[in-house]
């Protein structure tokens, strides 16, 4: 059962990922991204991270991709584009190099830690088979309790700094889109 779920979710993630790259219509690409995000959410559920799964769907699928689509529709760039025109010449080779580098990095990390991750029954991420552990972490709100414990004790500064970063980003966006009265040109628009 776990294997079936893993395979299906992985098909969703990979299929969506390939779709994002090969779809020619930006809206279809964004929808493929939603498929990938859902696949990741299924993976989270399979790993007992229910809260992360819910947040994944609410934040990424429910808000971020919706904003992507919103901007696509509002700016009217939701048409198939001619891919032969290339505004930045180095862009594509650079993307290929970066992609290969990322794959290499992930493979290296997996090889490096293949002994560290417990993959047997009752170890590592599979808490369901370990009754004592499942008792402890399998409770209804254990997930969110543990997360908040980490967030508000060990990582509280990182957490608060992130919120500062967000406020700065919002303020900067407002400033960039603002049409200041004393400027003769129309101020330009951020997206």
């Amino acid at each position: 059962m776990t294997l079936v779920v893993f395979v299906l979710a992985s098909i969703m993630v990979l299929g969506g990922g390939v779709g994002v790259v090969i779809m020619r219509n930006p809206v279809h690409a964004a929808l493929s991204l939603v498929l990938t995000l859902f696949g990741v959410a299924v993976h989270f559920v399979a790993m007992e991270a229910h809260f992360l799964a819910a947040v994944q769907v609410i934040v990424y699928a429910g808000a971020i991709v919706v904003l992507f689509l919103f901007v696509l529709m509002l700016l009217g760039v939701d048409k198939v584009e001619n891919l032969r025109i290339e505004p930045l010449a180095v862009q594509r080779p650079l993307a290929a190099v970066m992609g290969m580098a990322l794959v290499g990095l992930i493979v290296a990390a997996v090889i490096d830690t293949r002994d560290a991750v417990l993959t047997g029954v009752g170890g590592g991420i599979d808490v369901a088979a370990n009754t004592a552990l499942a008792e402890e972490v399998g409770g209804h709100d254990a997930n969110i309790r543990q997360l908040s414990d980490n967030l508000f004790s060990q990582y509280v500064f990182a957490f608060e700094l992130t919120s500062v970063l967000l406020v700065v980003a919002v303020a900067a966006t407002v400033l960039m889109t603002r049409k200041l009265p004393d400027r003769p040109d129309d101020g330009g628009g951020g997206e």
């Binding site: 809260f51 609410i58 429910g62 919706v66």
Partner: peptide, 18 residues
């Protein structure tokens, strides 16, 4: 009765916009 219960409602209502 999933552990995240009510968050599922929020998630579905944010999916409904699609």
């Amino acid at each position: 009765d999933p552990p995240v219960g009510i968050l599922l409602v929020l998630a579905l209502s944010s999916i409904a916009v699609y």
